[in-house]
Simulated assay, not measured.
Amino acid sequence: MRQHQNKIISPWVLVAGISAVSLVLTLMEENLGELFRYERKAVLQGEIWRLISGHLVHANLAHWLMNMAALAVMGLLFPTVLHGGRAAMLLFSLCLMTALGLMVLFPQLEWFVGLSGVLHGLFAVGALQVMSVESKRGWVLLGLLIFKLTYEQFGAGLPASQSLVGMRVISEAHLVGAVGGMIYWLVSRFFRGQKNNGP
């Protein structure tokens, strides 16, 4: 019983922790001269913490609330993805993969803030994990993700989100984060298979 309770509680401990740290950084950002947001030039000059902190700081409280609500939904949809030490490694990896991917693939993007790229990566990991157990439901989730990404890349974006955030929604981060999540899931599945087939 205790083990089962831990599996339920653990994702919410992680969600609460990320929300608290993110809120503090968001409130501090204006007074610290944009010290935490991702800035490509600053990262290239050695301020590598921005590869992580850029995902945690937000443009304003509405932006923060929107992303934390989405993170809570991830906890409901994919509780096993956000459980335990592997979840921390997943989040850290998605932060790095998204930021580095944007640096390489979209060098014209000078700066960004927000967790949405990582959230799309989490959704991709969750959808693929569900697919390995419930194929039909997993394909539906993955299809919804692909539809959203396609609409953002070739459509008009999401005006309601842009209005709340007060800045352009960085759809490039959504795409890179989702692809990063798929890569993470495939690589981790490969190594788990290697471990299971080992001596």
Rank of each mutant, 00 (worst) to 15 (best):
H120A: 15
S10C: 13
T150V: 13
L25T: 02
L90W: 02
Q194R: 14
I146E: 06
F147Q: 08
W64P: 00
L100P: 00
V73W: 04
N6H: 12
R50I: 09
G101L: 06
E34W: 11
M74I: 11
M182N: 05
W185L: 07
A127F: 00
A70V: 15
V24Q: 04
K195D: 09
G46T: 09
S161Q: 12
V165H: 05
G143M: 11
R50T: 08
G84C: 06
G166H: 06
T80V: 10
G143N: 11
L90R: 02
G155D: 09
L186E: 06
E30I: 13
G181V: 00
F78S: 02
R192K: 13
I9W: 11
M167L: 11
A124R: 00
Q194L: 15
F92H: 04
F154W: 15
P159M: 07
G84S: 06
A99D: 03
A160S: 14
M103N: 04
S93P: 03
W185R: 10
L23W: 12
W64C: 01
Q153N: 08
G180E: 03
L90P: 01
G46P: 04
P79G: 09
A124D: 00
G75N: 06
G114K: 00
S135N: 09
G138V: 07
H63C: 05
T26D: 05
L145R: 02
M97K: 01
V24P: 01
L76T: 10
V73N: 02
A178I: 00
S188D: 11
G101F: 07
A72E: 07
M1D: 10
F106W: 08
G84W: 05
R189L: 10
A124Y: 01
E34T: 14
A178F: 00
W49Q: 09
F190G: 08
P11K: 10
R168H: 13
Q45C: 09
A16W: 05
